[in-house]
Amino acid sequence: MDNLTPSDLFSPSKARQQRAQAQDWAQIESWLSYKYAGRTMPTFERNEETLKVLRELSTANERADEERVIQERLEREALKELDEAQPHPDDTHILSTLTAALTTPGSTALASLASAAIHLNTSTPTPETIAHTLIHQTSVSHSLSNHLTHIHALQKYLEKQHSLLRAQLSELQSDPAFSTPVSLQRQTNDQARQTKHLKAKIREYEDKLATLSATQGRAPKNADMASAEAILEMLEQQKLGDQLRERVEGLEKEVQAFAGLPADREAARREVGKLELELDTVRRRREVLFEDLVGKGRV
């Protein structure tokens, strides 16, 4: 709601958008309060990008909670079915006969084979199948461990870059060199007023020049308007008009430099800081690309 201007109050679409954003922020705050369970929530910048990320995170969290609830219910039902299932008498007789006929090492091997088949979730508990499944599980576990290590390193790098960007942002916000001058609004108004005045002067001199040219065209060849004094006066007026035109163009360029900034000083300061941050990001990206090109050239 901080970006709401007086003109937005008369725009139904903007008011509706601001109201929807306020509702989204209220839902996000309620969700964070529930997740932190009485602990202090971390402070963060409230803008559209942060709101978008928090909405996606909330949606993903709710989806994960639903999937976990479904998985727990399925596990409970499966355990209930296993508890209720009664073994067939023939199977029990065969198992007891086989167990009685096995030696102690054989019984231990059979228990190990059954335990491995259960933990590896193999449909055919043969030594070959268990061996292939164990190799596959080991390979997947090693790959996941490598990915997890890479993600941890990437997370540390991102946290470091985040701290650097926060420090640079704080420096840009506190550095007087990047602050908007107090007299910026007054200078802009003065230059706009001078530009308007000079435009009026240029139109006045252009009208006079057109009138003089028309009068000279209607006068006879031997008239006084063709004298040297009239020509010199016309050249002086034309020179003065060119100077005024150049001055107006210069003032228009100076005013154009401030055209994209908001009228409010704080808003203009934030816009300048944002542009400086984007410029710094582009510079770092250019340096990384240049280093990559240099590295490839050396190879």
Rank of each mutant, 00 (worst) to 15 (best):
L148K: 10
L120F: 07
T99E: 15
D90G: 03
F178Y: 12
P125R: 08
L82G: 09
V140N: 07
S183A: 15
Q86R: 15
V182K: 05
L165I: 10
L74P: 00
T188F: 12
I135G: 00
A109S: 10
P87D: 11
E75W: 07
L164A: 10
H152G: 03
P125G: 11
E159F: 13
E159K: 14
D91M: 08
Q137V: 05
L120I: 02
P176T: 06
S183I: 13
I70G: 03
S112V: 00
H119Q: 14
A85Q: 04
S112R: 05
K156Q: 12
S163V: 03
P127N: 04
T108F: 05
L110S: 03
N146M: 06
T124N: 14
Q137C: 08
L144M: 14
H132W: 03
T124A: 11
A153W: 01
P176N: 06
H150M: 08
A177P: 01
Q187C: 05
I70D: 10
E81T: 06
Q137H: 09
S139C: 01
H147S: 11
L74Q: 11
P105Q: 04
D91H: 10
S179N: 10
K80P: 00
E159D: 15
S143I: 11
T122M: 08
S115F: 12
H152V: 04
Q191P: 00
A117F: 01
T129D: 12
V69A: 12
E72L: 12
L82S: 11
L102N: 04
E75I: 05
H162E: 09
L148V: 02
T99S: 15
L95Y: 13
S115K: 15
S141P: 00
T180I: 07
R73I: 03
S145Q: 07
Q168K: 10
D91A: 12
L172S: 01
P105T: 04
Q185F: 05
S179Q: 14
A192V: 04
T129F: 02
N121E: 15
Q86L: 12
T92W: 03
A78Y: 09
Q185L: 13
H119F: 06
P125V: 06
S174N: 12
L148T: 10
A85L: 09
F178L: 07
A101R: 09
E159M: 14
I118P: 00
S170T: 10
A109F: 13
I130K: 01
D175V: 05
S112T: 03
T129I: 06
D83E: 14
L165K: 14
Q161I: 02
L102T: 03
E84P: 00
R186I: 04
T188I: 13
P181K: 00
I118H: 13
N121D: 15
A100V: 02
S141E: 06
I151A: 11
S141G: 07
I130F: 01
K160D: 11
S163T: 11
E171D: 15
H162W: 08
T103E: 05
N146R: 13
Q155I: 04
L82V: 09
P176M: 05
K80S: 14
L120Q: 12
I130V: 04
L74F: 05
T126P: 02
Q155D: 08
I135A: 10
S183D: 15
Q137W: 03
A109L: 13
